[in-house]
Design a protein around this nucleic acid. Structure first.
Lengths: 138, 138
DNA sequence: TAATAGTTTGCAACTTTGTTGCAAATATTT
DNA sequence: AAATATTTGCAACAAAGTTGCAAACTATTA
């Protein structure tokens, strides 16, 4: 497992450091999306805030994780699917945020429907974020 | 016009004050969504930052404006449609953010398609945010 | 329309979130 | 194992958002 993580980092031309390994592991273990604060607490504040910010930023740039827009405008991150590469994200699945427990899920198998835009508009990315009650909270 | 604005405030049990009137006017004049900073600059910094925060919060609570989730997690606000009331937003239209000029539009006549969620999930709200190039920038 | 009651505003102080430069520490290359 | 390149943590800062409270304003009532 640790080797798999290192593999992913190397494949993306990133040095294999303790913080990056640990943070990427967290994402692989977690079934839900993570906020900066989640990562701070799940690593027992062993890494500097700045390191976490920079790691997340790097991972997004490399196409390892993606951000999820939320209605309350907090920043969430989740693992990308394999098709994502540097500069080209391809996470066209629906996200779900539970109003009760706050957990955010990537609904990987539910894909974003095509939206027909008015004349003159062209789309690069479409985010669908549903919120309500998740299967664990009802 | 000023009277209409005052009417809206009264209907929502809000005192008619200069800042609220001015800010609500801004939303009615604007074709696009506004960020906190837009409001500060369009009012020539005549109102305290805190007042603007509180006004926006109040308007959202009353169902006068709604927030728009964005991929870069900045906070945007736009007028609600008439059906919105306190505690119950109903803005199921698509939002579009232009990557070039940054303008955010409510595409009022394009409604959000129904998303079929996995068993056990129930939805209260679905946000669709498309981004790309708008009709003014192509 | 003046006095009173209720609400809103602006200020100050603070917290939280995110950013930048740089030296020390760690990883990679040879 | 030494040299080079990259990453980290610290400090200092900047931006965004919050809270308590007295003063200003709005609405109410007589």
């Amino acid at each position: 497992m640790k080797n798999d993580i290192a593999e992913i980092l190397k494949r993306n031309q990133l040095s294999v450091t303790e913080s990056r390994t640990k943070i990427l592991e967290l994402f692989h273990e977690s079934k839900s999306a993570l906020a900066h604060a989640d990562i701070e607490s799940k690593t027992d504040e062993s890494y500097d805030r700045v390191t976490i910010y920079r790691t997340l930023q790097t991972f997004v740039e490399k196409g390892i994780i993606h951000t999820i827009p939320t209605a309350d405008n907090s920043v969430l991150y989740a693992l990308c699917k394999d098709e994502c590469t540097q500069g080209k994200h391809n996470d066209n699945h629906v996200h779900f945020i539970c109003d009760s427990c706050g957990t955010t899920f990537c609904l990987d198998h539910i894909s974003v429907p095509e939206i027909i835009l008015p004349k003159g508009f062209t789309t690069h990315r479409t985010d669908v974020v549903a919120s309500g009650i998740c299967k664990n909270c009802r």
